[in-house]
């Protein structure tokens, strides 16, 4: 008998649904309120905080972590975890940059041929990431090894492969058209923000409307039951990790373009920690279950906002860690209180 489902608790949850007071509204939407509070507070003490540039910076800088976190949300929804995300970013960036740099087109003015070549290089990068995702998913579901171990292995392998592709040295893309891709703006909006909006919309659609996401959630909620209702756990798991890997690849390629160089040893390093934090803040349960895409979006922006606030107020590195911890703890607490 489930001792946790005491009548008192059930009653409480029933009450929650019917309650419609002002305070409970705040409680039910504590995350946006916390967010709002953070922004109001900062608009007071952070110089020029309320500006389009701050928004522009935050969103652009949050871009790679946001994409990784979106993929991570689905992975965590399935009851797994993926710590190979940073290495997958590196591998896809390395493949893309290496192939792109092969052609003399790299430094020529924009042309149809150049765009095709770039697209071809990016596709190869996505493919490489896809292989990593495939490996993750297959090892996890076929051999029933802990996701954290599998993705740790893939992390080592992918990172090594990325370094082998580039040789010993980071590959500089300075002066190539690839660097311009990172600074591209369409009607004033940075390309990162546009891709991000597209990715968030796509993931919202996937999470809410597709059979795939429902099955992912079912596996995360109760793996045994999912097997017994005939869900193809192998296929769905592989799908989740491939999806995550492809999102990482886009993040990796765009990071390479933004920085104008690919450092296979450093690119995407530790991004999994920020991404996992973003998912945690967003309220997706780590034991698996519903993927909260919008929560993750909030979480990713929040995590980046901390860095922005630290930079803008010139808070020294040592204090910045404490600030980060405080904000994250408060955020997790706020969303947990629902």
């Amino acid at each position: 008998m489930p001792d946790s489902d005491t009548p008192a608790k059930l009653l409480a949850s029933a009450n929650m649904q019917h309650a419609t007071g002002g305070m409970s509204f705040v409680k039910a939407h504590s995350m946006p309120f916390f967010f709002l509070a953070l922004i109001v507070l900062n608009s007071i003490f952070t110089p020029s905080f309320l500006s389009i540039d701050t928004l522009d910076n935050t969103l652009r800088q949050a871009f790679p972590m946001m994409l990784v976190a979106l993929g991570m949300t689905m992975v965590i929804s399935s009851g797994g975890i993926d710590i190979s995300v940073g290495a997958i970013m590196a591998v896809s960036a390395a493949v893309t940059a290496r192939i792109f740099a092969l052609s003399v087109l790299a430094t020529t003015p924009v042309s149809v041929l150049l765009i095709l070549w770039m697209a071809c290089a990016i596709c190869c990068g996505l493919l490489a990431a896809g292989v990593c995702g495939l490996l993750n998913g297959m090892l996890i579901s076929k051999f029933k090894i802990q996701p954290i171990i599998v993705t740790l292995i893939v992390m080592f392998v992918a990172r090594s492969v990325a370094q082998m592709i580039l040789g010993e040295l980071p590959l500089s893309l300075m002066g190539t058209r690839f660097e311009d891709l990172g600074r591209l703006r369409i009607l004033g909006a940075p390309i990162q923000v546009l891709i991000m909006i597209g990715a968030v919309a796509a993931m919202l659609f996937i999470a809410k409307k597709t059979v795939f996401a429902r099955r992912v959630e079912a596996i995360g909620e109760n793996r045994r039951a999912a097997r017994l209702v005939g869900i193809n756990i192998f296929r769905v798991t592989v799908g989740v990790y491939v999806l995550c890997a492809v999102l990482c690849a886009i993040a990796g390629v765009m990071e390479a373009a933004r920085g104008g160089r690919v450092d296979a040893g450093r690119l995407g390093m530790f991004i999994e920690l920020d991404a996992i934090a973003a998912v945690a803040i967003g309220g997706t349960a780590f034991s698996g279950g519903r993927a909260r895409i919008l929560g993750t979006v909030f979480g990713a922006v929040l995590v980046q906002l901390v860095t922005v606030i630290v930079n803008m107020n010139d808070i020294s590195y040592h204090y910045s860690l404490i600030l980060k911890a405080v904000v994250l703890v408060t955020a997790v607490w706020a969303q947990k209180d629902k």
């Binding site: 059979v211 429902r214 099955r215 079912a218 909620e221 109760n222 999912a226 017994l228 869900i231 279950g289």
Partner: peptide, 22 residues
């Protein structure tokens, strides 16, 4: 039921249709 049947946090509808999603 608990370990091998229900998806506790999913809705009644979702629990019912999980096998006929196609």
């Amino acid at each position: 039921r608990k370990a091998e049947g229900i998806f506790p946090n999913m809705t009644v509808m979702e629990n019912m249709t999980i096998g006929v999603l196609d």
